Every structure is written in C-alpha cells, then in structure tokens.
Amino acid sequence: MGEHLSVSLQPQPVLTTDRLILRPLLENDAAVIQQALSDRAIGDTMISIPHPYPPGAASAYISRQQSAFEAGEAVVFAIEQAAQQQFIGAIEIREIDQEHLQAELSFWLVASAWNQGYMSEVLPPILQYGFLDLGLNRLYAYHMARNSACGRMLRNKGFVQEGVLRQRVRKWGVFEDVVLMSILREEW
C-alpha cells in the first residue's frame, strides 16, 4: 500500500527568533492591522490587499483566519518585535492542499519594518513549521515582478522561480506580472 500523508493541524504554536515572536492573531490586533494595511505603500506591492483598506476589514480578516485554521485550510502568524512587543506584520500558510501537501505563503510587514531582515528571520521557523509540523511537501509564494527585494529574499531562503504569470494582476489600473516561486521539502 502507498504511503498516506496528510496535513495535521495541532493547536497553533508560538514560534520565536532572536528578535521576533510569531504568534496567533488576536482580536486586539485588528486596530494595528487596520492602520498598517491602510498604508498605500503596503497595498502597492500586495496582490490581495486593497487600497484603501476598507473600514472593519481587519476584524473580518482575523475572524476568517480563525475559521480557516479550524477548518485546516490556513495558519496565520502575527509577527511581533519581541523587545517592544510591537506588531509589525503577518505571515500566512494558506490554501493548504491536503491531497497534494502544498500551500501558499503570503506575508507583509509594516513599512517601518522594511529592509531590516525581519522576513529573512521569519522564514526559517515558518518553513520548519510547514514542512515538519504540517507535513507539507511544497510551499509556494507569489510576488509582483517589480518587487525584486521580495524575490531576492525568497531565493536566499532556497525558493526557486517557477515562472512569470504575465499581467496576472491589475493594480490601480495597470496590469502587472507576478512571479511564482516555490521550495520543496527535499530542498529545504
């Protein structure tokens, strides 16, 4: 008989790095998320975050994420600076595919936290969680082609470019290319 693998969601852990705490989203994160995602700079390079960010959208997002976690479809971590106990972003393992053992990574940081190496620090424990705790075989991520810093960071963490989705998204009336990158458990 063939080996049967499946993704298993246990209670969501808290992961830590030297400077960061990766924890479940909480209802009281809504105000800071609402403010952060209202920043046009974040909306500019995010495929699925609208600008302006609608009032009440952060509370609805947290509620959806909690339901998605309970259904085994997604896990989202708040990214918090440990020393300051300050929320600076989020990273999701979403669209968990139980049959093919793959999922998408999606992440964002507040603009004041850009270019400080936080996402490079976040990815190792998230990859470990995805591959070992969730039992995934493949994690993939999309980024807008013009966001070369994101592509560089993913490549530095072992992701391989699979392709370019030409004019995949329309952002403020302009069609833009999107890059698809992935990492396999055997490459990690």
Rank of each mutant, 00 (worst) to 15 (best):
L26T: 04
Q102L: 10
P52C: 09
A36V: 09
Q86R: 15
A90Q: 14
Y61V: 04
L123F: 03
P124F: 00
R94A: 02
A111P: 14
A60M: 04
P124L: 00
Q86V: 11
I47V: 14
A41F: 06
Y118I: 06
V76S: 10
Y129F: 11
D97W: 00
F87V: 06
L132R: 14
G89I: 10
S106R: 09
L134V: 01
Q128Y: 06
Y53H: 07
G130D: 06
S59W: 06
Q86F: 12
I33A: 08
I126N: 03
I62G: 01
Q98N: 05
R64Q: 13
L139G: 04
S48G: 08
F77L: 03
F107I: 02
S63V: 07
S48L: 08
L136R: 05
P24F: 12
L139W: 00
F77N: 04
A111V: 15
L136F: 02
L105T: 09
D133M: 04
L109Q: 04
D133L: 02
E70S: 15
N137C: 07
V75K: 09
Y61D: 11
W114R: 09
A57G: 11
R40M: 07
L139P: 07
I93K: 05
V32P: 02
E95F: 07
S38N: 14
I79P: 01
A60H: 08
F69E: 15
I126Y: 01
Q81I: 13
E80R: 09
F131M: 00
L105F: 11
